[in-house]
């Protein structure tokens, strides 16, 4: 079996550009999903019924449909429906943010519900208002507990951006495919890209584990 890595040596900048797009898309998506997801999660736990029911339906729908389907639908169907054609990057950003926000919302909900009712009672006994209790007692502890799950959200986001290749977003996976097609060296190209993904994903989970160990005691009541 002869391996020829020369296409990689020639086009490493092309691939690196793809990596840049991957990282940019991931960071923007994760940030958006965290903000939207937290809002949805808080609405789910503390909101009135007319807010909670649609939010639950939205979250469950996102859990039921594959990312690939959401990406494709968003890119093609939305442009047909609205007449606006989005650049694939922005379509992917919107679709992924909306999808991952649902998972963030569930993490937020689980975190808040894991706080002992005794903590709320102790804060009430001091005379705090419900809003103050959520802000000063429940959320700080819940945030610590959510940390490992949030870490995995970033990891999941990066992995999901690879699916954006199906709508031709010029991220790493797409560029790998293009390069593999042009050079007829799929094994070398995909193997190297595998290593690249592994290098960006592996340290992330380790880092979050370490960080969590140090602050876990702040969330333990």
């Amino acid at each position: 079996m002869d391996l020829d890595f020369s296409p990689l040596l020639e086009s490493w900048q092309y691939l690196l550009g793809g990596l840049g797009v991957t990282l940019l898309l991931s960071v923007l998506t994760a940030a958006g999903a965290l903000v939207l997801g937290t809002a949805l999660g808080l609405g789910r736990v503390y909101g009135p019924a007319w807010l909670r029911i649609p939010i639950v339906f939205y979250i469950d729908t996102q859990r039921a449909i594959p990312v690939l389907v959401i990406l494709v639908w968003f890119y093609f169907a939305v442009s047909i429906l609205t007449g606006i054609s989005f650049h694939p990057f922005w379509a992917a950003l919107m679709a992924l943010t909306l999808h991952i926000a649902a998972y963030v919302a569930e993490i937020v909900r689980a975190g808040i519900e894991s706080i002992r009712p005794g903590q709320v009672r102790a804060a009430l006994a001091l005379g705090m208002s419900r809003v103050q209790i959520v802000r000063k007692v429940v959320l700080p502890q819940a945030l610590v507990r959510m940390l490992p799950a949030f870490g995995s959200i970033l990891s999941i986001t990066i992995k999901d951006t690879a699916i954006a290749t199906v709508i031709a977003v010029p991220e790493l996976m797409k560029r790998a495919e293009t390069l593999a097609g042009q050079s007829y060296r799929p094994i070398e190209i995909f193997t190297v890209v595998m290593v690249i993904y592994f290098i960006i994903l592996f340290p992330g989970t380790r880092l979050i584990d370490m960080l969590y160990k140090r602050v876990a005691h702040l969330g333990r009541s």
């Binding site: 005794g118 903590q119 102790a122 006994a125 001091l126 208002s129 610590v144 333990r220 009541s221």
Partner: peptide
């Protein structure tokens, strides 16, 4: 809430805020 401020409560499980 105003009334609660007049009273202090100590719980069996302490319920200190861990953070």
């Amino acid at each position: 809430r105003k009334v609660r401020q007049k009273m202090g409560m100590v719980f069996q499980n302490f319920e200190l805020f861990p953070h």
